[in-house]
Each structure stands twice: as structure tokens, then as C-alpha cells.
Design a protein around this nucleic acid. Structure first.
Length: 112
DNA sequence: AGCCTGACCTAGG
DNA sequence: TCCTAGGCCAGGC
């Protein structure tokens, strides 16, 4: 497992319940500004991590659940989010800006 | 080595 | 405003 994954997982683990973030922002924060697709790949592999990685709290830039089909069951991702108080309609997080969690603002710059 | 694939993003028409 | 093409990084074959 390369170091970039470790960093991605580490940041995702910091996302509080009831908040969501997106791939591009995380990629930027871990030092790979154009590596948004890599973050998606990392989420795909996240179940191999020893630590729990709340991959369902990561959505794309417009708040859509683009990764729902990679969860073990239909609408599992949506249910996980709704358990945390987030409203999802048509694979779209409602009030996305309000729930958005930005590592650039919430975490210290030397977190990595 | 080379080509294809993705849980993405941005710019341009 | 919607749609497309291109660029991006790493992995799989």
C-alpha cells in the first residue's frame, strides 16, 4: 500500500458523521491536486484498510452519490448517510453546501 | 511497454 | 443551461 492511500484514508477518517466532502478537495489536500480519480480508486480499495474508512461521506463535486454502486447493496450508501441525518433525494445530497466538510479549513496544514 | 479503465473535474461550445 | 472532450493519476492486463 503506497503512502498516498494512507494519506487519503487518514483524511477521510477525519470527516465527522453527518458531514460530506468531495474527491477533488481531498485529492488537493493530500498533495495530488489533479488526482481526484485516484481518490475514487482509493475508496474502491478502502475495505482492505485495517481502519474503518467512511467512504460514503465522500461524494462528487455537486453532491451526487456517484459511488453508490460500489457498496455491497442497493442504496446502502444512501442509507448510511440518512442514518447520520443527511437527506438524499435522487442520489443527490440535499443542502450539500451546508453539510460540506473542507479539510483545508478543518484540519491543520501539517496534518499530512 | 502500451493501452484501457475509473466512486473526477474543468473549460468551451 | 446542458453536453462533450480532454486532462488527470494510478492500477490491471
Amino acid at each position: 500500500m503506497s503512502d498516498i492511500y494512507t494519506r487519503i484514508f487518514k483524511v477521510v477518517q477525519e470527516i465527522p458523521a453527518g458531514r460530506v466532502s468531495n474527491y477533488g478537495t481531498i485529492a488537493k489536500f493530500v498533495g495530488s491536486p489533479r488526482g481526484s480519480r485516484l481518490v475514487g480508486w482509493a475508496m474502491n480499495k478502502s475495505h482492505t484498510s485495517e481502519e474503518y474508512v467512511p467512504a460514503h461521506r465522500v461524494v462528487n463535486r455537486i453532491g451526487m452519490l456517484s459511488g453508490k454502486h460500489h457498496f455491497p447493496g442497493e442504496d446502502i450508501m444512501q442509507q448510511l448517510l440518512e442514518n447520520e441525518g443527511i437527506v438524499v433525494i435522487d442520489d443527490q445530497v440535499q443542502d450539500f453546501e451546508k453539510h460540506f466538510w473542507d479539510p483545508m479549513k478543518e484540519l491543520p496544514e501539517d496534518f499530512i
